[in-house]
């Protein structure tokens, strides 16, 4: 690396600065985020829902003063929504307005920047300010879209047949998130650094909850985290996420509950568990018969 990275200067730097924005990263996350910056490689973050995958990208953007460009993936996402699109309607108008202008001139006219609609991937590449490109829930897309991502992820360039190749002015910090509902192709994975985010340990989760909900008392937070951890050990259809334990903490603060006894847990468990069978099982396992 000729010049020092523009993102983080060391893993510790990454950890401290991310913590400053309220994102408490564990050492592995900090190191991987640092490496993604230094090696200028995309970062693929996988893990269960609600462990802070998207938040990581937002936090990186926040602490480095970069702008966040987000591509939300969904089934049926195509080139026109991800990369770029020609503004057909405007082009048609231009052709109709051209009158007796020769076709060659019109042709050169309508394939210019003016008629190009840039979509997130192209936008991120053409920006000369620091940019964090978040490609969210990449496993929701079709396999074809992955092929389309390859050029962007490995060379940071986009080829538009009519205009030529647009190379990145400044490489963005790319974060891809995935819930692992589908195995991504080897080609995409090979181009990325990989980070698996999992539920944090009790100590870290307590820190996260108290930093997000400062009004929560220390003792209640400890009890809350303990219950959440025991729920995750059960065989549930959907284990409670960090986001849900934060929601639960907010609920407890709003209801001014300080003690987690069986009744209050029963009353508020709906915040954590969204399946009826999970709820029944939780009550049975935690032995809160009342």
């Amino acid at each position: 690396m000729p010049q020092p990275s523009t993102w983080f200067s060391s893993p510790d730097d990454a950890a401290t600065r991310l913590a400053g924005s309220g994102y408490l990263a564990d050492p592995a996350t900090a190191i991987t985020a640092y490496l993604a910056g230094v090696l200028e490689k995309p970062l693929l973050v996988e893990g269960p829902a609600g462990v802070g995958k998207t938040e990581l990208a937002k936090a990186v953007a926040c602490v480095t003063g970069a702008e966040l460009v987000r591509l939300q993936c969904y089934e049926g996402l195509d080139e026109a929504r991800a990369l770029y699109e020609w503004n057909y309607k405007k082009q048609l108008l231009r052709i109709q307005a051209s009158g007796d202008q020769s076709w060659e001139e019109t042709h050169d006219d309508i394939f210019t920047d003016e008629f190009l609609l840039t979509r997130p991937l192209l936008t991120a590449i053409r920006r000369d300010e620091p940019t964090v490109l978040l490609i969210d829930e990449v496993d929701k897309t079709d396999v074809e879209v992955e092929g389309l991502l390859l050029e962007v992820l490995s060379d940071f360039q986009v080829t538009i047949p009519e205009l030529g190749t647009v190379a990145a002015v400044r490489r963005p910090f790319v974060v891809l998130t995935s819930n692992a509902t589908r195995e991504l192709s080897e080609a995409v994975k090979r181009r990325c650094l990989y980070l698996h985010l999992d539920y944090p340990d009790a100590e870290r989760e307590r820190e996260i909850v108290t930093s997000q909900v400062p009004d929560l008392e220390e003792r209640t937070a400890r009890m809350l985290v303990e219950v959440v951890h025991r729920l995750r050990d059960l065989d549930l259809k959907k284990a409670p996420s960090i986001a849900e334990s934060v929601d639960w903490a907010r609920t407890l603060v709003a209801l001014e509950i300080r003690d987690l006894d069986p009744t209050t847990i029963d009353d508020t468990l709906g915040v954590l568990l969204k399946h009826h069978s999970d709820r029944e099982k939780a009550m049975k396992e935690l032995r809160f018969a009342g």
Binding site: A28, L35, L39, A180, C192
Partner: peptide
């Protein structure tokens, strides 16, 4: 090659750092 580049970018004084650098570049399936 990525793994080698990653190792070049981190300090080697902590074993867990080296492990994380290897894991980020080599392990693509949990």
């Amino acid at each position: 090659l990525d793994a080698v580049a990653a190792l070049g970018a981190v300090d080697w004084d902590r074993r867990e750092t080296v492990r994380a650098a290897y894991a980020a570049t080599l392990v693509k399936k949990q």
